[in-house]
């Protein structure tokens, strides 16, 4: 029981170290590296799609196909719950 715990601890320390090294190289907060698409949405979403909520205009219009996938995921989840809790005849 003692041996595996030490192995888990070593893995944990190594994993956290890798994550911290990634944090060390991260770009400053609020200054994205490739802001072209963000600037386009902020500048043009309101005049192109006439929605004041830019997040909604991205989710339901610019990336509408992705939202269709999310809705399909919910539908599939409900279907599987209904299959799991079905009444046995």
């Amino acid at each position: 029981m003692k041996g595996p715990r030490i192995i888990y601890l070593i893995f944990f320390v190594v994993f956290v170290g890798i994550l911290c090294q990634g944090l060390y190289d991260i770009h400053p907060f609020g200054e994205p590296r490739e802001p072209a698409m963000d600037d386009y949405f902020i500048a043009n979403a309101q005049s192109e799609r006439a929605a004041n909520n830019v997040v909604t205009s991205i989710v339901f219009d610019y990336r509408g196909f992705d939202t269709l996938g999310e809705a399909a995921v919910l539908f599939t989840a409900v279907m599987s719950v209904a299959a799991l809790f079905r009444k046995e005849e």
Binding site: R49, A50, F60, L74
Partner: peptide, 20 residues
């Protein structure tokens, strides 16, 4: 009364989430 299909899609998804 703005935003076109965004509002309609919102209501459709809302209906689906309520039901689901």
């Amino acid at each position: 009364n703005s935003s076109g299909t965004i509002a309609l899609a919102n209501m459709a998804v809302g209906l689906e989430v309520v039901g689901g």
